[in-house]
C-alpha cells in the first residue's frame, strides 16, 4: 500500500469492520430504530389480543371522551377507543408496508440484476422502463391506480407495489456495474464459471446491503404514503382501524376533540422515525459508501 494516509484510514475502518456484529449492535441508530421497530411489531402482533375494546363497535354514549384512565387516548366521534384503534392500525400499516416492500424488492432487484449484468440493448430497454416508472410522481400514480381499481386496502397495496420498484432497479444495476468490473468477477470468468452462477455467487451478495438499507427506509415511506392514500379515502374503508383514515375521520372535530387527529399522527410519526433511524444505522454499517443514498429522494 503506497497511499499511506489511506492505509491509515482503511486500517481504521478495518478495525471497526472486523467486529461486524459488535458494531451492528452498538450503532446507536440500529439500537434505537431496532427497538422502536421491534416494539411496533410486538404491538401489531399481540396488541389486538390484549386490548379490552372492540376497535369497530360504536358506543354512542361514550363519544368524544377526552383522555382518561379508561380511554388513555380518548374516544372518537363514534365512541370507539382511540388507543385500541391505533393498536389495530399498527397491524394494518405494518402488514401493508412489508408486503408492498417485498414486491418492490423482488421486481426491482430482478430488473436491476438483468440490466446490469446482461447490459447492451436489454439494459437500455429496461432502463427506459425504469425511467418511465420514475416519470410518475409516486403518490399520484398510486392514487390513480388505487382509485381506478376501486378504493380498498388490497388495491392500495397493489398500487404501492407497482410503483417504487424502479429505485431498487437503479441501485442494483449501479452496484452490479460497479462490482462487475472488479477483478474477482473477472477471475471467476477465467475458470469458465457460467454467467448465472457468477451473478448468484458474486454479484448478488455484494448488492444485497444497499437493498436492505433502501428497503428499511422504504418501509417508512410506504407507511406514510399508505396513510396519505387512506386519508384521501382510497385505502382502508371505515370502520377499518387505519391511521390515515382515523385522521380523516377526526378532521371535522379538530377544535373540540384534537386527540382524535393527534394520536394517530404520532403513531405514524413514531413508526416512520423507527424505520428511518434503523435504516440510517444500517447504512452506516452495511453501506458505508452510501450507494443507495441517491435513490432515497425518489418515489
Amino acid at each position: 500500500m503506497w497511499r499511506s494516509l489511506d492505509a491509515v484510514r482503511e486500517w481504521l475502518s478495518e478495525r471497526t469492520r472486523s467486529q461486524f456484529a459488535w458494531s451492528l449492535r452498538t450503532t446507536p441508530g440500529v439500537r434505537f430504530g431496532g427497538t422502536v421497530v421491534c416494539l411496533l411489531a410486538v404491538v401489531a402482533v399481540f396488541g389486538p389480543l390484549v386490548s379490552p375494546y372492540d376497535p369497530t363497535a360504536q358506543v354512542l354514549e361514550a363519544r368524544f371522551e377526552g383522555p382518561s384512565l379508561a380511554h388513555p387516548l380518548g374516544t372518537d366521534a363514534l365512541g370507539r377507543d382511540v388507543a385500541t384503534r391505533i393498536v389495530h392500525g399498527a397491524r394494518v400499516s405494518l402488514a401493508l408496508a412489508v408486503a408492498a416492500t417485498a414486491v418492490r424488492v423482488v421486481i426491482g432487484t430482478t430488473i436491476g440484476l438483468l440490466a446490469g449484468y446482461v447490459g447492451g440493448l436489454v439494459d437500455t430497454a429496461l432502463m427506459r422502463l425504469v425511467d418511465i416508472q420514475l416519470a410518475f410522481p409516486g403518490l399520484v400514480l398510486a392514487l390513480v391506480i388505487a382509485g381506478v381499481l376501486g378504493p380498498s386496502l388490497r388495491n392500495v397495496m397493489i398500487a404501492l407495489s407497482v410503483v417504487g420498484w424502479a429505485s431498487y432497479a437503479r441501485v442494483v444495476r449501479g452496484n452490479v456495474l460497479e462490482v462487475k468490473d472488479r477483478p474477482f468477477v473477472e477471475a471467476a470468468r477465467l475458470y469458465g464459471t457460467p454467467q448465472r452462477r457468477i451473478a448468484r455467487r458474486h454479484l448478488l451478495p455484494n448488492v444485497v446491503n444497499p437493498v436492505v438499507v433502501l428497503a428499511t427506509m422504504n418501509l417508512g415511506t410506504i407507511v406514510l404514503t399508505a396513510a396519505g392514500l387512506s386519508f384521501l379515502g382510497l385505502g382502508a374503508q371505515p370502520p377499518t382501524p387505519e391511521w390515515g383514515t382515523m385522521i380523516a375521520g377526526g378532521r371535522d372535530y379538530l377544535r373540540s376533540a384534537p386527540w382524535i387527529v393527534t394520536a394517530p399522527g404520532i403513531a405514524i410519526m413514531a413508526t416512520v422515525i423507527g424505520f428511518n433511524v434503523l435504516g440510517d444505522g444500517l447504512r452506516d454499517v452495511l453501506d458505508p459508501d452510501h450507494l443507495g443514498e441517491r435513490e432515497r429522494g425518489r418515489s
Partner: peptide, 15 residues
C-alpha cells in the same frame, strides 16, 4: 492459464 491481478484487495470477493 492462471492469472494474478494487481490488487489482491479487489481480486478476491470480500464476502
Amino acid at each position: 492459464v492462471g492469472v494474478v491481478f494487481q490488487n489482491p484487495g479487489t481480486s478476491l470477493n470480500p464476502k
